[in-house]
Design a protein around this nucleic acid. Structure first.
Length: 324
DNA sequence: AAGATGACCAACCGCACACGT
DNA sequence: CACGTGTGCGGTTGGTCATCT
């Protein structure tokens, strides 16, 4: 529509905000509310565009912003939600109520992404990078799941959009209706109740095809590489304390499949990754038995995610509000 | 000591969408 | 329905500071 830039007017200031400007903006919003952002700068006596004011307010001046280092729980939440939602920073931010999308985005780009990369996990797909090699048979099997995945994704998109609209109307429900993946009352949806929890199939569909941080078998691992927090944890299902680990090796060769080993010689069960790394379309009876066990484990895993995402205990700790 | 490099993060930019007319 | 406006969002930039050489 050929819309003109909001800051095209000469004379409008750009760049870092001064304490005086902050004070003006703060004082005006406290007194009048922000109202129309475009009109605000003139009323508040600021030589800024409305957009700049809005950004300054939402990312910095808002009183309900928690600043400073992200704790481990917050990091885990970000990683989990990024695995589910991708770069939907605003959606992720709704589950970290005191953090801004910009802050989360910055933290992801400067810390978490690098950490995952160091671990050999693609920060985009949340899969081991080696999975791109030798996974052709797996990818063939994957195709049959793509429709399921896409269906779940589209459903979630639609619901996100609806809830976004809803949030704009009802701020009181802000933290309980923002993220949506599963059920919906949409006519196009197969699910009819907004109160219906997400089921395993949908979650698996979501994590399938590279969207999930974790695969079918529970083993999501996060390593805080920073020296002051040498702590390893599995994000779901199998919490472990792994002090003094300094690096992580994901074993991908057939003789050592299913383990993650540290240079300290410890090993972790990581059948989850191997499920992705190997073609598991075996007709071997033993392996089928193994698959049954994995299915059970998988179910427990998804239950853990469902517990997480359906948790409704709002607090400073970033518990995920109900999603569905 | 000084320049190079990297990390961090606030802020900007442009696009997309919702909504009112 | 078309158009204009306001706002939200995600990607990117650029300034500042710390560390390295």
């Amino acid at each position: 529509m050929g819309r003109s830039p909001c800051c095209e007017k000469v004379g409008l200031k750009k760049g870092p905000w001064t304490p005086e400007e902050d004070q003006k903006l703060l004082a005006y919003i406290e007194k009048h509310g922000h109202g129309s952002w475009r009109a605000l700068p003139i009323k508040a006596g600021l030589q800024r565009c409305g957009k700049s004011c809005r950004l300054r307010w939402t990312n910095y001046l808002r009183p309900d912003i928690k600043r400073g280092k992200f704790n481990l729980q917050e990091e885990h939440t970000i990683i989990q939600l990024h695995a589910l939602l991708g770069n939907r920073w605003s959606a992720i931010a709704t589950h970290l109520p005191k953090r801004t999308d910009n802050e989360i985005k910055n933290y992801w780009n400067t810390h978490l992404k690098k950490r995952l990369a160091k671990m050999g996990i693609d920060p985009v797909t949340h899969k081991p990078k080696s999975d791109t090699l030798g996974s052709q048979s797996k990818s063939a099997a994957s195709l049959s799941h793509m429709a399921q995945w896409e269906s779940a994704r589209l459903e979630a998109e639609a619901r996100l959009a609806r809830e976004s609209k809803f949030r704009s109307v009802s701020t009181s429900l802000h933290h309980h209706n923002s993220l949506s993946l599963g059920s919906t009352s949409s006519s196009s949806s197969s699910c009819s109740s907004s109160a219906t929890p997400l089921d395993h199939d949908v979650l698996q569909a979501w994590t399938f095809s590279g969207v999930g941080l974790i695969d079918d078998n529970h083993s999501t691992i996060c390593h805080n590489m920073e020296s002051e927090e040498v702590e390893w944890k599995c994000l779901f299902g199998k919490p472990r304390q792994m002090d003094n680990f300094t690096s992580l090796v994901i074993s991908v060769d057939s003789s050592n499949v299913g383990t993650v080993s540290s240079d300290a010689g410890d090993e972790l069960d990581i059948v989850g990754f191997t499920g992705m790394l190997l073609d598991n379309s075996s007709d071997n009876a033993e392996e089928r038995s193994s698959c049954a066990e994995e299915d059970e484990e998988s179910k427990r895993y998804w239950d853990s995610i469902l517990n997480l995402v359906n948790s409704d205990s709002p607090s400073d700790t970033p518990q995920l509000p109900p999603l569905f």
